[in-house]
Simulated assay, not measured.
Amino acid sequence: MENKLEIKTPEFVSVQFSLAGLGSRAAAFLIDQAIITITYLLLFLLFYFIDESISIFADGSSILFAVIIISIFVIQWGYFFVLEFFYGGRTIGKKLIGIRVIQENGHSLTLLSSIIRNLLRIIDALPTSYFIGMIMVFFHSKHKRVGDIVAGTIVVHERSKKKKDKKSSMEEELNLRGLYIGSQLLDKDVVSSYNQKDWELVKVYYNRFLQLPYNERVDITEKLAIILLPKAGVNLSTLSQNEKENYLLFLYILLKEEWEYEL
C-alpha cells in the first residue's frame, strides 16, 4: 500500500504526509483505551463512595445506573473529541506514538469533522473490538476508517523533533520576550483566520528578524502588522514597535502549529 500522500494547498504549495497505518493507530488506541478504562474505574469508585449503601446495579439505584451509563458515553466519546480538537489532532495515545489527525486538505481538524469522526466510532466498533474500523484502515488506500471517510480526515505520522544541544538565537529572543505557546497574547482560535501565504510571510519575518537592520525591521514590522494583525482583531493604533514585534513573533508560534507539520 502507498503510505505517502501529497497535498497541494490553495496557494499551490505541495506538502507530503506519511500516512499512519493500522499498527500505529491500533497502538495509539490501546493507550487511549487504557486511560479511559482507568477513568471508568475511578468513576465507579466515586459513585460507590457517593452511595455505598446500595449496589450500583440494584433495582433501587436506577437513577445512579443511568448516570453511570451516560457518564461512560460522555467519557468514551468526549475523550477523543476534546483532545483531538483542542490538542492539534492528538490524543495522549497519538501523541506518544507520534501521529495526528488532520483534514484531508492538510489543515487542522475542524469542530464539525472532530464531532463526525468520533460519533461514527459507534459504526467502526461493530460488531466488536473495532472490527469494521480495523478492516477499513487495513484495506483503504489512505488508511481511513468509516469516521475518517465521512469527516474527510486522515491520520498522519509526525517526525520526531531532533533535540538541540543549544537554543538558537531566536529561541533565546522569544524567551527574553516571554513568548511561548502557552502565552495569552493571542487566542489560539485566530489561527483559522490565516492562510498559507500569511504563514510564509510571518515565517520569513521570524527567520530574518535578528539579521534585519533596525530601520528595516521597523519598516517591515509596520507593513506586516497592517496586513496580519487586524485578522486577529488587534488594534494597531495603541501598539508600540516592540508590541507589534511581539504580536508578529507570537503569531509565528501559533501558525507553526498549524502549518509546519513535522512529518
Rank of each mutant, 00 (worst) to 15 (best):
R159G: 13
Y180S: 14
D187F: 09
L185C: 06
E158A: 08
M136P: 03
S113G: 09
R159H: 14
F139Q: 12
D187M: 09
G133H: 00
R121D: 01
R145V: 00
L126T: 11
L126S: 10
I123L: 10
V191Q: 14
Q184S: 15
I116L: 08
D187K: 13
S108R: 11
G178A: 04
L174S: 01
N118I: 01
V190G: 03
A125P: 07
Y180H: 15
V155E: 00
Y180R: 12
F131Q: 08
M170R: 08
R177N: 09
L120R: 01
K167Y: 12
S193I: 10
A125F: 12
E158R: 11
S169N: 14
G182I: 10
L120Q: 05
M136C: 11
D148M: 00
F131T: 13
K167I: 11
N118A: 02
G133A: 04
S141F: 11
K188N: 15
R145A: 02
L119C: 13
R117I: 02
F138D: 07
F131N: 07
D148V: 00
K188W: 13
S193Q: 15
L120P: 03
I154Q: 04
D165T: 13
D189K: 15
K167T: 10
K142R: 13
H143R: 09
D124H: 05
N118V: 02
R117C: 02
N105A: 04
S108K: 11
S129W: 13
L112T: 12
K167V: 11
D187E: 15
L112V: 10
A151I: 03
D187S: 13
V137I: 09
G147D: 02
H157Y: 14
L126R: 08
H157V: 10
S113M: 03
R117F: 01
L111E: 08
K142G: 04
D124Y: 03
I154D: 02
L185K: 06
E171W: 07
M170H: 07
G147Y: 00
G106C: 01
S113K: 02
L186D: 04
E173P: 06
H157D: 09
S141C: 08
I123S: 04
R117M: 06
K166W: 11
K161W: 10
I123K: 06
M170L: 12
S168Y: 08
S141D: 14
H143P: 04
E104W: 07
S169C: 10
F131P: 02
L176Q: 15
I135M: 07
I115F: 09
M134A: 11
R117K: 08
S183T: 05
I135L: 10
I123N: 04
I102T: 01
G178S: 04
I149H: 05
S168C: 08
G152P: 01
H107C: 13
